[in-house]
């Protein structure tokens, strides 16, 4: 299984080692976004209108979007920042919109984007917080679920870990990876 990890941490976290263990049987590319030069999405819409599917900025941001489409599983990894993603992760996520069509479609009473590709990778969203904070966790899992509705993964799982007990985090990750078909 081809796995792409988009890592929004600036350094190491208690999630990193357990995640590597859980994914060890797979072909993993782990991108430390803080070390990459990815300019912010300019909101110019050219990837929807003029060069559909491709961002005009180019560089690593485009490569991340290309790798996203060509993965079987994408893991979004972030510390909880005000209940949301870190700016490092969000910077890369904002550059993923060329992978959707700009056109809108009404689906079950909601409006969504038309798919550009017939197949998207499965999605795992992993958050981590130093200390358990139920309110932040709720915001994070809601945000992850909203991403799931828009990124259209065939399977999806999300979790928020807390603290430094790597063994416990390992058990948690093992369980959620089963939900997206990743065995050990």
């Amino acid at each position: 299984m081809k796995v792409l990890v988009l890592d929004g941490f600036t350094g190491q976290s208690p999630v990193h080692r357990p995640l590597a263990t859980v994914l060890s049987a797979h072909q993993v590319e782990h991108i430390k976004l803080a070390q990459e030069d990815i300019p912010w999405c300019r909101g110019c819409f050219q990837c929807w209108l003029i060069t559909p599917g491709e961002c005009v900025i180019g560089g690593t941001g485009n490569e991340v979007a290309r790798k996203y489409i060509n993965s079987d599983l994408v893991v979004l990894l972030s510390p909880l920042v005000f209940g949301g993603y870190s700016a490092e992760l969000k910077r890369a996520m904002d550059r993923l919109i060329p992978n959707m069509s700009g056109l809108l479609v009404r689906r079950g009473g909601d409006t969504r984007h038309v798919r550009r590709y017939s197949r998207y990778p499965s999605l795992v969203v992993l958050g981590w917080q130093q200390e358990e904070d139920a309110r932040q966790k709720e915001i994070f899992l809601d945000l992850a679920y909203r991403n799931k509705l828009n990124l259209m993964p065939p399977s999806f799982a999300s979790a928020v870990s807390s603290g430094k007990d790597e063994e416990q985090i390992n058990r948690q990750l093992t369980a959620i990876m089963v939900e997206v078909g990743v065995g050990r």
């Binding site: 999405c41 909101g43 920042v81 993603y85 870190s86 700016a87 904002d94 945000l143 991403n147 828009n150």
Partner: peptide, 17 residues
Amino acid sequence: APIYVDTLPAPATAFLE
């Protein structure tokens, strides 16, 4: 702010951080 991929755009998040 506008919504990008379901939440605040990256530069807004970076600013708040």
